[in-house]
Design a protein around this nucleic acid. Sequence first.
DNA 1: ATACGTTCACATGGTTCA
DNA 2: TGAACCATGTGAACGTAT
Lengths: 388, 388
Amino acid sequence: MSPIPSRLNSSTSSTSSGSSTSSPSTPYHHVGRTRTRQAPYIPSYLEEGQQCVVCGDKATGLHYQAITCEGCKGFFRRTAQKRLQYSCKENNDCEINVISRNVCQACRFKKCLISGMTTDLVLDEQERNAKRQLIEKNREKKELDQLMGLLKESFPCLPINEVKSIVDNVSEAYCKWIDPSLKMDSNFRFQDPVEQFNSLMTPTLARTFAFLKSLEGFSSLDLNQIREIMTSSNGWLEVQILKTIHKIDVENWLLLIEEDAPQGSPPRSPGVPLGNLRFEKNFIDDLKRISESFSNLQMTTEEIALLSAVILFPESLAEKNPEMKKQKKQLWTILEHIVEQNASILDFGIERWPKLLNKLMNLQMIVNRHSKVFFEATNAREVARLFT
Amino acid sequence: MSPIPSRLNSSTSSTSSGSSTSSPSTPYHHVGRTRTRQAPYIPSYLEEGQQCVVCGDKATGLHYQAITCEGCKGFFRRTAQKRLQYSCKENNDCEINVISRNVCQACRFKKCLISGMTTDLVLDEQERNAKRQLIEKNREKKELDQLMGLLKESFPCLPINEVKSIVDNVSEAYCKWIDPSLKMDSNFRFQDPVEQFNSLMTPTLARTFAFLKSLEGFSSLDLNQIREIMTSSNGWLEVQILKTIHKIDVENWLLLIEEDAPQGSPPRSPGVPLGNLRFEKNFIDDLKRISESFSNLQMTTEEIALLSAVILFPESLAEKNPEMKKQKKQLWTILEHIVEQNASILDFGIERWPKLLNKLMNLQMIVNRHSKVFFEATNAREVARLFT
DNA sequence: ATACGTTCACATGGTTCA
DNA sequence: TGAACCATGTGAACGTAT
Ligand SMILES: [Zn+2]
Ligand SMILES: [Zn+2]
Ligand SMILES: [Zn+2]
Ligand SMILES: [Zn+2]
């Protein structure tokens, strides 16, 4: 029914907690405007026209263990959530009906309790938070899944179907005829390499995606734009490699990553010898060269982060949108500034900035030269190790 | 059983619903509607009215090693799958019965475990995936078998695989050379035609030729033969027009092509109004007529591909070479069968095949009537747009 | 025949915004 | 404040592989 304003209209400062939530992304850009207002849902167990046990308004279902209207539901929740204390200006016996219910909050809440509503069912701060987080998480996941779907179309890894089927057949035959005991883990071993590739690369892409979105002005990009960005350049690969080469111990050529030890082996290996990675020698050599080259710069975390941002910043966007162009320029400028500032602090020559640019070019060339390597399904596992 | 509200969500009454909510998705479901609700299956080892060891509701069988109801089964599975952690708001000793089971998830799960349910039997993500894939695979196989069976009836004489591979090959070649937009995953333009011809002809001709060449028995044609074929009939024009008219939105008379937006204009035009094309009105009108005519047939990609193949198949070759003649005949036969088969699937009248032939004749007449249009130098640009 | 996962209508919690 | 909305947990019915 129509809410009747009265007396304590002042009430609470009202809602407006929100903000932060980021726009709900405009679920549907409707054209039709019509949006058939769908009939408010009523649970099937309610009789026709059943009344709210508190105020007699039209009930909409069980709420906090009592059959109530939307109004009493909301009132009760707000009261319990914020632990509000009301006091009656009369004799604690105000009548509560659909007209008068907003006159005395104290008596309304009292009647709620008497009518069987229980605050136990009101989620407390913590639970509420958990719920919000869950929803946020799911939202992201959903978006990511969609993106992954699009990405899969855009750069499918090289399937190598022939190899796969040969390997599968031979292995399967082996297990079947020669060593049946192996059959157990066949699930694991014969998993489709393409699937494997996807599941292994997803975390990496997801992180890159999240990083990109966190940059100013990128949060509102839609999925297709993101896909375009991710596929139209090797930027994300370059960023990953940039990260990786800073994890290489150039003295001993160890890749310093934490891996779960297989079993019973020493708890933590100090690192993986580069030679142990199953890539072609060519690639490993380039990796060594470039990581040695960068190690001389002693880049700081901030510098790496900024560099990653500009690498990822899609040129196409900058060209289309002057605002974005300005932003990219700004990032470059800041980076330059910091690099040179650190140069003097680190007692570097004056050449640090040009050197960085030079090395960056080198990095991009190398990534480009080997870009195929990253998409071979058979390499997926090693690539994932590299990018962990 | 009987639902009672409580903490989380209450359960439902068994009402059989019938409500019309139906807002979300509403995927394909049976239309039969009659569907006598068959008695929910109960394993034979259960005694009459045996109870769920967790909540006392009616048990439906062994689930994860304990005799439980459907509710506890689902609750346990979800919890284990998502590795959920609950916490009790009371003293970890909440009573669990059919009424209260939804009050405290922590205690419900605890009771599940105590009652002998084991998470070992809950399939993990990977196993679940494997299962899904297996089911999917089997479904496809089943469908394929059915289709094969259908084809086999239609072509008792021909090896069934051959028919299917012919259809597949022609369709694939068509998508590759003539109309890439048909292919789901080909967001990227045409395959580059063989270079040697590329320089000698317009891209359209080159692609049409490539299509022809990919047909069985045509791969060895040399340039001169090609030229002869291409010039001796309007086949290639007909094929291109056939493609084009299937890109026309007959509601709004828009030609649905993707053009690079000039600059700064809206990123993607929904289509080009036919009237915008710089052809004589005569020609446009015929185009409208013929495209409307074909749109009624709702031709599938395979049908269009096969039709294109037979249109392009040079009569001269068929006459000279009995082998080729047979092949052409075969293509016609396959096309006819598929068209009629689809007629029944699409709930078409029995007239689909004759109608197609009729419309084809019309198409050829129109192309013939306007053939001059395509070769006038001043029209070159527009023709290229049309055939993109 | 059995016991897995899947599907989806439903109920109900929180959230939004006029 | 509360009408409309969104999102998630629930469980009955169901589809399949073993
Ligand atoms: Zn009320
Ligand atoms: Zn009062
Ligand atoms: Zn139970
Ligand atoms: Zn408890």
